[in-house]
Write a protein that binds this DNA or RNA. Structure first.
Length: 99
RNA sequence: UGAGCCGGCCGGGCGGCCGCGGCGGGGAGACCCGUCGAGGAAGGUCCGGGCUCCACAGGGCGAGGUGGUGGGCAACACCCACCCGGGGUGACCCGCGGGACAGUGCCACAGAGAACAGACCGCCUCCCCGGUGCGCGAGCAGCGGGGCGGUAAGGGUGAAACGGUGGUGUAAGAGACCACCAGCGCUCCGGGUGACCGGAGCGGCUCGGUAAACCCCACCUGGAGCAAGGUCAAGAAGGGAGCACGGGCGACCGGGCUCCCGCGCGAGCGUUCGAGGGCGGCCCGCCCGAGCUCGCGGGUAGACCGCACGAGGCCGUCGGCGACGGCGGUCCCAGAUGGAUGGUCGCCCACCGAGACGUCGCGAGGCGUCCGGGGACAGAACCCGGCCUACAGGCCGGCUCAUCCC
RNA sequence: CGGGGUGUGGCGCAGUUUGGUAGCGCACCCGCUUUGGGAGCGGGGGGCCGUGGGUUCAAAUCCCGCCACCCCGA
């Protein structure tokens, strides 16, 4: 599940200075698994997101929330689901804020 | 060879590509180079400390913890050795292991009786009544019923019944007495630092269990936690409810004139009483003492120190049964905070396969090659010492029992 | 980092303080009632008391260690 805030719709963030960098955050709850599996899921998602940051609008803020089935998924499966969600986010939505 | 016991250790390896964090160096900078980068449990957060802040005036009551002895340790509820009890043929294992004559409570059901003992059935002496047999008769034998007593051998209940076995004894019996055994207490001797052990004698013969029920005894314990605590920067807006916001005396003047009486303002001052707090259980006592408590609303959640040299690891040697300690040498070994320590491939190595082929064997099966699968539990957050829990697979050492061979 | 609570038939809860018989409501099954169903009445079945060990003659209850879930404070 993905949440995106693009730079045009977002207010100027007061907490950090250069607000034009694209930022990504991950939410992996305790329902996903123990600390080891939560770390593994987050690290895989981070490496996958690293290659896809260029495709996002400049200054976006993206939140990726991992569901419990991500614990048993392979990296290829995670990449396919991530691309599908990103395509739905960046495709037809006219406004800047979407889920 | 087969069963088994104990202790210690490892926790996949190598390489390619792309990345992350700390430290050091270079550079004006982008960045580059070097180096280090999770665990035996990092886990649960059950104990004990270090460190930091607060308090420190003590006393009493209470609460919590520990519980054989002697050592180890900074300390411990941990560890070592030993003692005692229980289990096992044995190597070994298990034990919250002080006190039940300081007191209180509880012991269901069953059973006569469950805790200063008591007496249901039964056994026995004696007395009374009834009737039978024998006898000419007084009476005797035995039966049934009742009563005053004596008993605790036998019966049965229970987890547990006031020593066990054999004998003497007796109306019947009983540690009433005797022998042996079990247990308790006292004295003495020997061993041990001690818990305790061994032996001898004597005693009354014999007093249940439960303290992981209250309790008693001995010892220990101030509170909070790195979001501790400190420095810097930035920002902010107040308003509401409740309790309290105070009382007495003195200093002014007059009269008797070191004190008392009369009078009036008492902001500040001194003294006394004081809500509340220090004092996170309560009381006495000590100290501070004019604000305290609870909602609503607003602001910040940035940087640095603490913060990585420590009861530190490894090696050797000496002392000790051991836990551990002394000495010498050597090494520096994670430090994030939107939280690094990774992602993805290839080869090898364990391991698995009722997959294929070859080979050995009568056979169960073994070996080799290929193929497929496949890598335990688990992620530091101030730091140590332990405990507990999870863990695929493997390695090493010591020991016991059984069987066979020499 | 610190503190607290819960676990008992299919579901929701008592019983734990002071140890000996596990109980209540709904649900389920059978019978009666009704033309039939519901409601009602009567009867019945079903629980390793989260788990492992210990104390005790005896443990859901007392003690210790784990497991799972929930809540609160900084």
């Amino acid at each position: 599940m993905l949440h995106l805030v693009t730079a045009t719709a977002s207010e100027p963030d007061p907490h950090d200075g250069p607000g034009d960098a694209t930022r990504v955050g991950f939410v992996v709850s305790r329902a996903v698994g123990n600390a080891v599996t939560r770390n593994r899921v987050r690290r895989r998602l981070r490496h996958l997101l690293r290659d896809r940051c260029a495709g996002l609008p400049h200054g976006s803020v993206l939140v990726v929330r991992a569901l419990p089935t991500a614990a048993v998924a392979t990296s290829a499966t995670l990449a396919r689901d991530l691309d599908r969600c990103l395509g739905r986010l960046l495709g037809p939505s006219p406004s800047g804020v979407d889920r």
